[in-house]
Design a protein around this nucleic acid. Structure first.
Length: 415
RNA sequence: GCGGGUGUAGCUCAGUUGGUUAGAGCGCCAGAUUGUGGCUCUGGAGGUCGCCGGUUCGAUCCCGGUCACUCGCCCCA
């Protein structure tokens, strides 16, 4: 039976050129996170299904229609992780890290959501993630935002994104506001759009962000969140804003910015861009003070964000070309072994060396050219008999002979 | 999950108002130049016209379904 020779919908292969951009994103992230004294954590790409369904909220889209869930051979329900935070919170509890708070983690890896693919939206995609667990103070939110801003700056995309900021208040404020919204929108239910009517049950805050023109008119007169925030919530939000201003991190308060996942409280933020079509969010996160308790642990505050590596890669544009190799070209069967030794020595000396496997010199030079080789080391029988090797400068088109024992040193000129 | 668009060579795309041998550029291979690349010239290979079915004497073209990509919605990184 012939296999279907295509990758599964919404998945794709990362070829070397794309992989360089991917790696640039991850390496920059790593460097910045380490500078903020975060430690790397790697959690499994699958968890027991309850880890996600319990923490994300049973009614959320992610849980109800987007998870890759299967029963394994032991009969357990397993889910490929659709996001990072739940798994990291679980790891925090599993490993007894309550003793060691605050914990500052960074991580990156694949995520899985069964959604309809679009540009910047895949079924297997990759995220960067940072979390601070065990800090209730707003400084943690500010530090995380600063980390994000540094990352985006170092990737050269800070000028393409806007930090949108909002607060969802603490549980009490949010619950009161939610009730007020439900009451208000229920009075207008007949004129609400179909989508928003569904949101009234599932996530009434979402209605505020509706794109429907009819909804907009109703929303304009809806109760304001600021009127329902208690003093503690207002103070917390003020601290976050003041902290950002002290660090000169530009932001825009967006009162319509809300969250689909249940566990968020207080700070919610997104770095958005116009450059990616409908998938404008490049990095997003917030505070989740209720999550760990929801999972069955002690009440523990947390903040974090995640960022889509593929989306960042699309934003950073083309990379400058990488380092250029040196091509080692044996001429004649008798020179094969010497050529291999030369390549080996040059590599051990830190040179990037390509050796093709077949073809005459013309073919091998053509290949060297395609690889953007800086120089070719041509190992010929005649020269070998005289104890010399030819180095050809592929940019200048000139070549010189150097004694065999000084070859590797001579290559330093072509680094 | 819902709605629109697209699918022809490795890549980017022409084309056929249904007719017998489907084209270009780039790329690839070979030769001019058998121990010297890039440039040039000459030649060549490469296609189930996404897949399955229907209509038709005949379908790459029309119709239906399906798969994939893409744009928007929902939601989200």
């Amino acid at each position: 039976m012939a296999a279907r020779l295509q990758s599964v919908r919404g998945t794709h292969d990362i070829l070397p050129e794309e992989a360089r951009k991917f790696r640039r994103v991850v390496e920059t992230f790593r460097a910045v996170a380490e500078r903020y004294a975060f430690g790397e954590i790697a959690t499994p790409i699958f968890e027991f299904t309850e880890v996600f369904s319990r923490s994300l909220g049973e009614a959320t889209d992610v849980v109800t229609k987007e998870m890759y869930t299967f029963t394994d051979r032991s009969g357990d329900s397993i889910t490929l992780r659709p996001e990072y935070t739940a798994g990291i919170a679980r790891a925090f509890l599993s490993n007894g890290l309550q003793q060691e708070t605050p914990c500052r983690f960074y991580a990156w890896g694949p995520m899985f959501r069964h959604e309809r693919p679009q540009k910047g939206r895949l079924r297997q995609f990759h995220q960067l993630d940072v979390e601070i667990i065990g800090v209730a103070e707003a400084q943690a939110d500010v530090e995380l935002l600063a980390l994000a801003y540094d990352l985006l700056s170092e990737l050269g995309v800070a000028d393409k994104v806007t930090l949108e900021l909002n607060t969802l208040g603490d549980h009490e404020s949010r619950a009161r506001y939610r009730d007020a919204l439900v009451k208000y929108f229920s009075a207008h239910v007949s004129t609400l759009s179909e989508d928003s009517r569904a949101r009234l049950d599932k996530n009434p805050l979402r209605i505020l962000d509706s794109k429907d023109a009819g909804d907009r008119a109703i929303i304009n007169n809806a109760p304001l969140f600021t009127d329902y925030l208690n003093e503690a919530s207002l103070a917390f939000f003020a601290d976050v804003k003041r902290g950002l201003e002290a660090l000169h991190i530009p932001y825009k308060v967006n009162p319509r910015l809300v969250r689909g996942l249940d566990y968020y409280t207080h700070t919610a933020f997104e770095f958005t861009t116009e450059a990616l079509g409908a998938q404008g969010t490049v990095l997003a996160g917030g505070r989740y003070d209720g999550l760990i308790e929801e999972l069955g642990g002690p009440a523990t505050p947390g903040v974090g964000w995640a960022s889509g590596i593929e989306r960042l890669s699309m934003l950073i544009g083309d990379l400058e070309p990488g380092p250029r190799p040196i091509a080692v070209i044996p001429v004649g069967a008798a020179t094969q072994e010497v050529a291999h030794i030369i390549a080996h020595d040059a590599r051990r000396a830190g040179h990037i060396v390509d050796m093709s496997y077949r073809g005459n010199m013309g073919k091998r030079l053509t290949r060297a050219n395609k690889l953007r080789a800086r120089a070719a080391v041509i190992v010929g029988e005649d020269e070998l008999a005289r104890g010399v090797i030819v180095i050809r400068d592929l940019d200048a088109g000139t070549q010189t002979e150097v004694p065999r024992d000084r070859l590797v040193a001579a290559l330093d000129a072509f680094r």
